[in-house]
């Protein structure tokens, strides 16, 4: 899978001017908050329209402002795991997990469902409501819900961002498993260099709406002993 992004977008007095391609299993979008990561991911998902530019997956154009092409979000088959999970409060976990399959009119696939619920250890939560889940459980259900819609690309926007350190440690292994077992390419957004090192196979570094570096883990700022790194650290390749 090859994701190509070459877009510009103005949001108030903030400007995004970014161009990159992601081909690995996990493309990391790395940068401080306010670097434009979420806006970029929203454009890839189709939730935000670029002012100018193109977005494509393999040979399929998703956005091309010159040709007036804009594939709406629901036809992109791009999964999205939000920082705040966004589980549907009126549906239980089972119905949340089944939502994408229903909307895409996919056949019921108990094998796939069992595989995903096992991978994420959420089989015991199926009858619960989102209000009865912990933050970590919610995030795992959100991952499962996105996967079961059978996306061709999975966007993860700071999926650990709303969790405390303990919960992060709880979820990270699932993300690694997902990368190694689920065979869905991912775009992983984070401002945490430690997460990037563990998950990303290639890294796009953003700063104030622009790509300032691209490559492997070597573009990340030097690891500090704590593993928590200020993303503002000036870095160049």
């Amino acid at each position: 899978m090859m994701l190509r992004v070459d877009v510009s977008k103005s949001l108030g007095d903030f400007h995004i001017e970014a161009s990159f391609a992601g081909a690995g299993r996990v493309t990391g979008l790395f940068g401080a908050s306010g670097a434009g990561k979420t806006s970029l991911v929203n454009m890839i998902a189709g939730l935000l329209r670029p002012d100018r530019g193109r977005i494509s997956i393999d040979s399929e154009t998703l956005d091309d402002t010159a040709a007036r092409v804009h594939v709406p979000a629901h036809r992109r088959r791009i999964g999205y795991v939000f920082q705040d999970a966004r589980l549907f409060p009126h549906l239980d976990v089972r119905q949340n997990l089944d939502y994408g399959r229903r909307m895409n009119r996919l056949a019921d696939d108990p094998v796939q469902r069992a595989r995903v619920t096992d991978l994420l250890d959420i089989g015991g939560l199926l009858g619960r409501r989102p209000g009865q889940l912990s933050g970590g459980e919610r995030q795992r259900v959100a991952l499962g819900r996105a996967l079961l819609a059978q996306p061709r690309l999975l966007l993860l926007d700071e999926p650990l961002g709303s969790l405390d350190e303990e919960r992060k440690v709880e979820i990270l292994p699932y993300l690694v498993r997902l990368r190694d077992e689920a065979s869905v390419p991912m775009v992983y957004v984070s401002h945490n260099a430690g997460e990037m090192r563990q998950l990303a196979t290639s890294i796009v570094m953003l700063r104030r709406g622009r790509v300032i570096a691209f490559g492997g883990a070597e573009v990340l700022p030097e690891a500090l002993p704590s593993g928590l790194i200020s993303a503002n650290t000036r870095t160049s390749r």
Binding site: H74, R76, F82, M103
Partner: peptide, 16 residues
Amino acid sequence: RMEQAAATLGAAPWRV
């Protein structure tokens, strides 16, 4: 944001 989440799961506007 719930509506956006539904759209990324493949729900057309009227189904959202």
